[in-house]
Structures are given as structure tokens and as C-alpha cells.
């Protein structure tokens, strides 16, 4: 009972808001969707842009008279920096590619070394086998039994 007697301005406002939202959102949506509204928005936009253009040209004229760089001039310096950064980026990419190519070269060189070592080892093995065969045949010659028919 006590609560009912209190007039809370916010509660009142909130009730109005909720009712407004519920009852009028559809109507507002319908209005916003009308072609006339789009036309009105376009007119407001044109007015705003014309105003902006006027402000910009006035500011630019003023800055030039004071010999202060304009936004256009400062941004052109920034563009030069960006272009330079782009060139660094391209160089960086090329270095990356070269480094990765270098890695491949290193791998190939490692493989070459391994193959050379393998080749040497194979030669040594073959040499050892051949020496072994020679020494084997030399030592076995005198002990070779004579053919029976001799």
C-alpha cells in the first residue's frame, strides 16, 4: 500500500518508454522505411555535406594564409612514409624468401656432404673387399691341392 502511494518519476518514465516502444516501434519502422524518409535523409545529408565543404575550404584558405600545412599536405607526407614502409615490406619479404632459399641450399649442401662421405665409405669398403680378396687368393695358392688327374 505504501509503495503504491509513492510516485516514482522514473517508474513513470519507464512505463511511458515501454509503452512507446511497444506501441510505436512498428509505426516508426514503417515511417523509416518510406521513400519520403529516404528522400528527407538525402536532403539532410546534402545540407550537412555542403556545410562541411564550406568549413573545409574556409579552413584551408585560412591555414594557407598563415603558412600552416593543411590536412591534405600533412597526409601526403604520411603517404610517403606509408609508401616507404611498403618498400621495406617488399624487401623484407624478399629477404624472407632468400633466407628460406638459403635454408634449402644448406640442406642440399648437407646432403651433398653426406653423399660424399657415403661415397668415400663405399670406396673404402670396396677397396677393403678387393684387398681382402687379393690377399685371400695369394695365401690360398700354395695350398691348393693338385688336381687328381695330374
Amino acid at each position: 500500500m505504501t509503495n503504491q502511494s509513492i510516485i516514482d518519476p522514473f517508474a513513470l518514465w519507464k512505463t511511458i518508454y515501454e509503452q512507446t516502444e511497444n506501441n510505436f516501434s512498428e509505426a516508426i519502422h514503417e515511417t523509416l522505411g518510406k521513400e519520403e524518409y529516404a528522400e528527407l535523409l538525402g536532403q539532410v545529408q546534402n545540407g550537412y555535406l555542403q556545410y562541411q565543404k564550406l568549413i573545409q575550404s574556409t579552413t584551408e584558405m585560412y591555414l594557407k594564409q598563415l603558412n600552416i600545412p593543411t590536412r591534405e599536405e600533412i597526409s601526403s607526407v604520411a603517404s610517403l612514409v606509408i609508401n616507404l614502409e611498403e618498400k621495406v615490406e617488399i624487401l623484407d619479404e624478399k629477404i624472407d624468401e632468400a633466407t628460406s632459399d638459403q635454408k634449402v641450399l644448406q640442406e642440399i649442401n648437407k646432403l651433398k656432404t653426406s653423399f660424399t662421405r657415403l661415397d668415400k665409405k663405399m670406396s673404402q669398403i670396396l677397396q677393403a673387399l678387393s684387398d681382402n680378396e687379393k690377399s685371400g687368393s695369394a695365401s690360398s695358392t700354395p695350398t691348393t691341392p693338385a688336381p687328381e688327374n695330374k
Binding site: 523509416l32 521513400e35 524518409y37 529516404a38 538525402g42 546534402n46 555535406l49 562541411q52
Partner: peptide, 21 residues
């Protein structure tokens, strides 16, 4: 939705907007 209507080229001056801002 509503953007189709609002951005209609008959009303929305796109080029003026980009060229100005």
C-alpha cells in the same frame, strides 16, 4: 532492410559524401 531504401542512389549522395569527408 531499411538500408536498401536509405542508400538508394536517387537520394543518397555517395560521391559527394566520400569526396567531402
Amino acid at each position: 532492410g531499411l538500408f536498401t531504401n536509405w542508400l538508394d542512389e536517387r537520394y543518397f549522395n555517395l560521391d559527394l559524401m566520400v569526396d567531402t569527408l
